Computed example of a mutant assay.
Amino acid sequence: MRPLSSPSRRRPLRTRHTGAAVTAAGLAALAAALTACSGSTPASADTAADKPDISVNLQGKQAKAGSPVKVTLADGKLKQVTVADSKGEKLTGKVAANGTTWTSDRKAAPGTSYKVEATTDEGASARTSFRTAAPEQVNKLSLTPGKDTTVGVAQPLSVVFDHPVKNKAEVEKHLKVTTSNDTTGSWGWIKNYDGKDRIDWRPKDYWKSGTKVKLDAQLAGINSGTDGGWFVRDYVTGFSVGKSQKVKVDLDSKQATLVRDGRSVKTVPMSAGTPGGDKASWGGTSVLMAKEGTINMRSETVGLGDAYDKMVDNSMRLTWSGMYAHAAPWNASYFGNTNHSSGCIGMSDGDASWLYGQVQVGDPFEVSGSGSKGVPDPGNGYGEWNLSWADWQTKSALS
């Protein structure tokens, strides 16, 4: 290799005046000396003409976040560019076909320091750095189910945001779901029961037992829109699908049946909500949200006045609005013959204890028969299974 000071290798320094170009003072700060691969030319012989002339679209300590990082070489061709934050996390990117620019695949996150290193095809390198401005507001999220959990076949992947999400399509594009068996599914935007924005990924049909699911939410650097704020980090979670089972609740026969792998395991008598008013049970499909054990149930918390205040065993939550399956020994005379509860599915202590031990979070409870008060909204627990597949797909911001 010839020394870089050879006349045949020299190029005059040129400054291009473009919208992304920096001032002469800025270029001087961004430039770095060539590193020669030959020792025949002393370092002191390097001149300004030997230095790679690079510019970066983001500069200083208050750079605007939310744009890809673009590195431009004034003369010659780029071989490699590395852009990394203070934690060593790198932004991937590509060199353009003409070799003069490199653009990151992802956007720069707010409140983040980045180091840039560019190498030319002649072996020269240049380094610089910048920091993006801190966000005025940060949007965070919560994920269900929890990481590395095992859930039932009806459990959707659910994301609830702390602040409103106006840029729904932009956010949805950065939520990547992968499954071990290429399950068909779709995102859908709904309102959570507390009024917060929420997006769920629901498979077309119930999950197959044994499916492994992963969410890679690459949200750092994405602006959720007015009143929402910036996302400043990525989120990764995953879960597995357990036994294929469901609970079928028949309001007409007053029976509840656990079905596993398509076969009935056991049927128990029960008493559901009193038909004809607010105390009626929800129909359709609800998903077991949590196994809460022994809890205090008070009627005023669900808008039913002072009708009851009880400690209730083997409580299995089905909706945010307060529908449970649980032990209800005080209602023993109604099991199997009359729906006479305040909306829940009540059973004997023994039957409730048995069912509690069999079900898993994410199992569907399919309620059929007459006397229900309709089906719960998608955000009241996980009520999206009450929508057809076609209707669910329309809730995607990318549909």
Rank of each mutant, 00 (worst) to 15 (best):
V361L: 08
V361G: 01
I345L: 09
V361P: 00
V367E: 11
N331C: 05
M347A: 06
N339K: 03
V359K: 03
E366C: 05
S348A: 13
E366L: 04
G346S: 15
L355D: 02
S333D: 08
L355F: 15
G336Y: 10
L355T: 03
N337W: 10
P364V: 04
H340V: 02
N337K: 15
W330F: 13
S348G: 05
V359Q: 10
M347T: 08
F365M: 12
H340Q: 15
V367F: 12
Y356R: 14
G362F: 06
S341W: 08
P329V: 15
D363E: 09
I345T: 14
S341L: 01
N339M: 04
D363T: 10
Q358I: 07
Q360P: 02
D349Q: 05
S341R: 04
G336I: 02
A328H: 05
A352L: 06
F365N: 11
S333A: 14
Q360F: 04
A352Q: 05
G362V: 01
E366H: 06
A328W: 06
A352S: 15
L355I: 11
D349T: 07
H340I: 02
N337F: 06
G357W: 14
D351A: 04
D349F: 06
A328S: 15
G362A: 11
A332Q: 10
S348P: 02
S341V: 02
I345F: 14
